[in-house]
Amino acid sequence: MSLKKSPWLLHYDGSSCNGCDIEVLACLTPLYDAERFGVINTGNPRHADLLLLTGSINHQNEEVVRNLYAQMPEPKVVLAVGICATSGGVFADCYNVKGGADKVLPVDVYVPGCAARPEAIIDGIVRALGVLEQKRAAAEAKK
C-alpha cells in the first residue's frame, strides 16, 4: 500500500528539447504540486518506483537508459512523456534518433503532447500508480 501512497519518481531526459522536462519540473512546483499524491522526485534510481522518460532514444543515451532501468527495484513502471518519447515525434527522421522509449524499455504509460501538459503528466502518473499496484499484486500472488 505504501508504494501507491508515495511513489518516488526518477526523471531522465532522453533527447528531448527541454519542453517536456520543464513541464515535468513544473508538475512538482506549487501550481500543480504532484507531491500531494506523495510523488517525490529522486535523483537515485535505486530509490525510484517510476521511471519518467522524456525525449527519444538515440545512439548515445540508449545504454544510460537501460542502466537506469536495471538499477531500479521491482516492481517498477515506465512512463513515456511527450510525443518524442512515444515515437520520436518531429525528430523521428533525424539520423541520430532511434525512436521512442519502447525501443529499449517496456513502456507502461504513454503521455501524449508536444510539449506534454502538466495536467496530462499528472494524469499519467496517477495511471502509472494503478499499473504499479497491479504489478505489486501480481508479484505477491506468485509468492
Partner: peptide, 21 residues
C-alpha cells in the same frame, strides 16, 4: 546525449515547415 541531428532535417523539409523544427 541529446544530439538529434536536426540541422540535417533542413534539406528534407519545406523551409516554411522547418520553423516548427
Amino acid at each position: 546525449f541529446i544530439h538529434r541531428g536536426l540541422e540535417l532535417l533542413a534539406p528534407k523539409r519545406d523551409f516554411e515547415e522547418y520553423v516548427m523544427i
